[in-house]
């Protein structure tokens, strides 16, 4: 990740939203590429991993259909984040409650894959605010500033979530520092 990464300005969003409303699929693809990691990370924090890719597609299709209802293009990130959370909630409401079969049950102990599955599971068991922010940082590779910009959270909130979440995660993983 480049620390000096230039974040998308609200005007880029506004331009692409206006074009996408007129049917410009390239403009919508630009929005997708700007926000897909956020949507993916937020879903990964909430639903079984095998359902995430389908739900990412669902969310963007839903957004495409509802673009006309977005009043303030500057609030696109927060609006998209809320749609994503609602979709995850809806997934749980509609899906039969069942024990998720984690892939790590089938993976040899101490392999890298197993360690990765365990680490992801540890993050997913953190309180919601911490797990979402940490997944965006550690899985999706977003910076704190980028997370704030995309989700509509304040930089201060993101900083607190990262710091406290990482502290809890270290404790869970046995570091305890």
């Amino acid at each position: 990740m480049n620390p000096t990464l230039e974040l998308a300005s609200g005007s880029e969003d506004a331009r692409d939203i206006a074009a996408a409303r007129g049917g410009d699929q390239a403009a919508f693809a630009a929005l997708y590429h700007r926000y897909a990691r956020m949507v993916h990370g937020m879903l990964l924090a909430r639903v079984p991993r095998e359902a995430v890719d389908d739900l990412v597609q669902d969310v963007f299709l839903m957004v495409y259909r509802r673009l006309d209802s977005l009043r303030d293009p500057g609030a696109f990130g927060g609006w998209l984040a809320q749609i994503t959370r609602n979709r995850a909630h809806d997934y749980h409401r509609r899906s039969p409650q069942s024990q998720e079969l984690h892939e790590h049950m089938l993976i040899a102990p101490a392999s890298e894959d197993r360690l990765a599955e365990d680490a992801l599971e540890a993050v997913r068991n953190l309180p919601e605010a911490y797990r979402e922010t940490l997944i965006l940082r550690l899985v999706e590779g977003m910076s704190g500033a980028e997370i704030a910009e995309r989700t509509g959270l304040t930089p201060a909130s993101v900083r607190v979530n990262l710091h406290r979440g990482m502290k809890l995660l270290r404790e869970k993983l046995g570091g305890g520092r």
Binding site: F28, A29, Y32, H33, A36, R37, V39, H40, G41, L44, R49, D53, V56, Q57, F60, L61, Y64, A116, L120, V139, E140, G141
Partner: peptide, 8 residues
């Protein structure tokens, strides 16, 4: 586990 999908 990072996102690697394509637009719908």
């Amino acid at each position: 586990f990072q996102h690697r999908g394509a637009p719908p």
